[in-house]
Structure formats: structure tokens, C-alpha cells
Computed example of a mutant assay.
Amino acid sequence: MGNICIVYASMTGNTEEIKDILASTLNTAAEADVYMMDNTEAEIIEDYDYILLGSYTYDDGDIPFEAEDFYEELENMDLTGKNFACFGSGDTLYVDFCNAAVLFEERVQEQGGKIMEPVLKVELSPHDEDQKEKCLKFAENVLHFIAADKIKN
């Protein structure tokens, strides 16, 4: 189905679990390459048309340390023609629930990227059936977007 990658940052494993659900769903139609944000340059996404960016939210709505460099590098990139979907884990005890994923979505839009599916916000981890279902639906919607995009182009 095309060149898809997932780039993510996870500390406690919650965002990694989301990534695992998304990757296994996407891999039913196409192989998604997976990278950890803290040891990947943002330029890697230049090789892909469909990019999923995932991050947990640190403190009061901040981008976590592991994702800061990647986030800052995006600011210098032209993302026109690239398609994105952002996801993250967070805790609703905080006012800015899953704000890092929202900040990534805003950044890619500022740089000309197109959003395939609105931000996926997961409460802590996708162990709960409702949270897992949200992840599956998000991945299915991304696959539908990619399929439709391929037909258009």
C-alpha cells in the first residue's frame, strides 16, 4: 500500500503499546517502518508519504525530552505532499491531555503537511477495551485514507 513509517517516543511503554497496535493493523495492508524518535533524525520522513508520529506528554503538556530534537527539526522542513497522523498517551488528570501529540499535529500542518486522521489521544495505556478500540479505529481510518489517496493519485 505504500511507504508508511511510525516514529514515536515512549518512556513508560504506553505510547509503545499504541504503536504496536497501530503497526500490527497497518501491516495487514502494508509494511510500516518503525523508528524511535530519540535516535532518529526528522529527515528520515522525507523517504515516506504516510507518517505517524507518536509521543507521550510530559509534565504539564510538554514535548518530552526524547522528542524535542525531532520536533524542533520539523520546523525547518517543507512537509508539503506528506500525510500525517499523530497519536499519544497521556493522563486526563492534566489539563493539557495528550498535548504533545497535538503540538506535533500543529507543527506538521504549519510546515505544509496534510492530516490523515485527527489526533489519537489514549488515556494512559491501551489495555482498556475502549482505548484499544480507539487505536484500531484510528489505524483503520489511516488505511482508508491511504487507499483513497492511492486511487486519487
Rank of each mutant, 00 (worst) to 15 (best):
G2D: 07
G2C: 05
N3L: 13
N3W: 10
I4V: 08
I6R: 08
V7S: 12
V7E: 10
V7P: 07
A9S: 14
A9L: 14
S10Q: 06
S10R: 07
S10V: 11
M11E: 14
T12Y: 06
N14H: 13
E16H: 04
E17P: 00
D20K: 13
L22C: 00
L22F: 03
L22Q: 01
S24L: 12
S24P: 05
T25M: 08
L26Y: 13
T28I: 09
A29D: 04
E31W: 05
V34Y: 08
M37W: 12
M37R: 07
D38N: 04
T40N: 02
A42E: 12
E43K: 15
I44R: 05
I45L: 14
I45K: 05
D47T: 05
D47L: 09
D47N: 13
D47Q: 12
D49F: 00
D49N: 06
Y50R: 10
I51R: 13
L52I: 13
L53R: 06
G54D: 00
Y58N: 09
Y58E: 07
Y58Q: 08
Y58I: 04
D59W: 02
D60G: 03
G61W: 01
G61C: 05
D62I: 06
A67Q: 07
A67Y: 05
A67R: 11
E68I: 11
E68N: 07
E68M: 10
D69H: 00
F70P: 06
Y71Q: 15
Y71C: 15
E72K: 14
L74A: 14
N76C: 10
L79H: 04
K82C: 10
F84Y: 11
C86D: 02
C86I: 06
S89L: 03
G90N: 06
D91L: 04
T92M: 11
L93Q: 07
Y94S: 06
V95M: 13
C98D: 00
C98H: 03
C98Q: 02
N99H: 12
A100Q: 14
A100E: 11
A101F: 03
V102E: 08
F104D: 07
E105F: 00
E105D: 04
R107D: 02
R107Y: 01
Q109K: 15
Q109N: 10
E110D: 13
Q111D: 03
G112I: 11
K114H: 04
K114R: 08
K114Q: 09
I115W: 07
I115G: 14
I115A: 15
M116Q: 11
M116D: 06
E117T: 14
V119I: 13
L120T: 14
L120K: 11
K121T: 08
K121M: 13
L124P: 01
L124W: 10
S125E: 04
P126Y: 11
P126N: 06
P126S: 03
D128F: 08
D128H: 10
D128M: 09
E129N: 15
E129R: 14
K132T: 12
E133N: 15
K134A: 15
K134R: 15
L136Q: 09
F138G: 04
F138L: 12
E140R: 07
V142R: 11
L143W: 00
H144L: 06
F145A: 02
A147D: 09
A147F: 03
I151D: 01
N153Q: 10
